[in-house]
Nucleic acid binder design. Structure first.
Lengths: 109, 109
DNA sequence: CCATTTGATCGCAATATTACGATACATATC
DNA sequence: GATATGTATCGTAATATTGCGATCAAATGG
């Protein structure tokens, strides 16, 4: 009990849920928006920008990295984060495809 | 501690996060897909379709209803669920707007 | 080599989510 | 009104998430 029963659903459903889950936090939305705006971003800048502890930001970055939406490259003592364009396009497409499936039908009134 | 610090983010970020959160579970994805496919759907049908307990399905339906993406109308002893078209279009739009903000930039290599 | 800078990770407390049996509730039907 | 049907809600156990201080690790600069 307590665990999501992923085995009851297909790969596409689980993947889509994982994508949405990665974005299901305002801090992670904010991080992504920042990266979209500024191309590169250092973890420390995000800490200043968002006003959360460094450990917290680092954890959120990890989750976004986990689904591949962002990537980070070490530059000296710093790590520069940016959007992973390829995955971004994929994710965008998967979202689009999900939302496009519905076109107005007879609703329950 | 343990609670999302919503007050650090703006309304748009929190709203988008809430939308994604509502979809951040494969069962809820599956429910929405079912409603898209079949227009109307009874809770009991979803229970049979997804293979989760009735109480669990009912809870997932509640979360989807909470952000307005679906609605249910009582029909006798049953409740018929369907997509809320208006909110669906809104949500689709908000997602689109989010994903469209990014167009390829110089990434960190 | 030592101190500094920067970020990742650990460990923990608080809270939230997931799942489900049991039960309450609402509407039919007899 | 009693019974059946279908759904919501309650209570609870298991697990996951959020946030952060403390610490670890890697690279830089002296």
């Amino acid at each position: 009990m307590g665990t999501t029963k992923k085995e009851k659903f297909n790969a596409r459903q689980n993947r889509l849920a994982a994508i949405f889950k990665a974005m299901a936090h305002p801090a992670r939305i904010a991080i992504v928006q920042q990266l979209v705006k500024s191309e590169h971003c250092i973890c420390g800048e995000l800490v200043g920008e968002l006003g959360l502890a460094q450990a917290t930001i680092s954890q959120h970055l990890k989750e976004l990295k986990h689904i591949g939406l962002i990537k980070g490259c070490v530059e000296g003592t710093r790590v520069s984060y940016c959007i992973n364009e390829k995955v971004w396009q994929q994710v965008k497409k998967e979202c689009d495809q999900f939302f496009v499936t519905y076109y107005a039908k007879e609703a329950c009134h």
